[in-house]
């Protein structure tokens, strides 16, 4: 079952990337929302330990939060960094050791693809790699000790995103993490402490910065915007550039609203 879930996630990631690439190359864009150049996410997630290892057999389902930042580097390909923290309680000390709660911290970089289905929906998929650490704590009855299990995380993250506005969207993000731990364990324990796996489902809010330089102005009735657009950009003052940015943003919003009405 766990293997199937992993395969589905990998296939979904590959297919979504391939589909996005194909669409980009074969059809004209069917949306009016400018491309995203930067985004920052805040999310809450449910983390499900999985696999036949000390994580899957030793930890209960956890809850956490995270932050991600991404920059478009070429067309819809983006890179970014993320931090997350998840909280777990121990369900089986026989497997994992004598402590009662764990806090998992991840810090990783990722590379992914962002595909805009239409003005309302986006999908993203990325692969990440970085540092992972479980900070484990004993209860008072267990002696109150603290220690860490550290390792490296490989993460596949997908998301489906609904745009509330050009600047804000909400998303649902299934992801899969495989962590290779640096735990030195006794031979009798086998490979139980070598790896840990998590399946996560996150709900988040994304704040976007878009590229308004390419917003079409044919239908614009804003003379000031057209005037600024027609001038050489190098001749514009900082305040005029700023004004141009917000006028374009406003224009994009108007076009999007009109497009929705015409559906």
């Amino acid at each position: 079952m766990r293997l199937i879930t992993r395969k589905i996630l990998i296939i979904a990631t590959v297919l979504s990337g391939y589909y996005s690439y194909s669409q980009e190359n074969t059809t004209e864009k069917s949306h009016s929302l400018p491309d995203r150049v930067f985004a920052v996410d805040f999310y809450l997630q449910r983390a499900l330990p999985s696999g036949d290892n000390f994580i899957g057999n030793g930890l209960s389902d956890g809850t956490g939060y995270g932050i991600r930042m991404q920059f478009d580097i070429y067309k819809n390909i983006y890179v970014g960094g993320a931090l997350s923290q998840d909280f777990f309680s121990v369900k089986n000390t026989d497997v994992i050791g004598e402590f009662n709660r764990a806090t998992k911290f991840n810090a990783y970089l990722f590379l992914g693809y962002d595909y805009q289905l239409n003005d309302d929906w986006n999908i993203t998929a990325d692969l990440g790699y970085g540092y992972s650490q479980n900070k484990n704590r004993q209860s008072t009855e267990q002696g109150g000790g603290k220690f860490r299990d550290t390792g490296n995380v490989f993460r596949i993250t997908t998301s489906i995103e609904y745009n509330l506005s050009s600047a804000t969207s909400i998303y649902l993000s299934p992801s899969y993490e495989s962590i290779s731990y640096n735990i030195n364990s006794a031979p009798a324990l086998g490979d139980t402490f070598d790896k840990g796996k998590f399946i996560n489902l996150a709900l988040g809010i994304r704040f976007n910065v878009r590229d308004y330089r390419n917003v079409p102005l044919k239908d614009a009735d804003n003379q000031e915007l057209i005037d600024l657009q027609n001038r050489d950009r190098d001749d514009l003052s900082i305040s005029e550039k700023r004004k141009l940015y917000f006028l374009k943003k406003k224009e994009a919003r108007r076009l999007r609203r009109e497009r929705r009405r015409s559906k």
């Binding site: 220690f147 735990i183 364990s185 031979p187």
Partner: peptide, 9 residues
């Protein structure tokens, strides 16, 4: 503190 990254048997 207990030792990090260790499990004994």
């Amino acid at each position: 503190r207990l030792d990090d990254d260790k499990r004994a048997f």
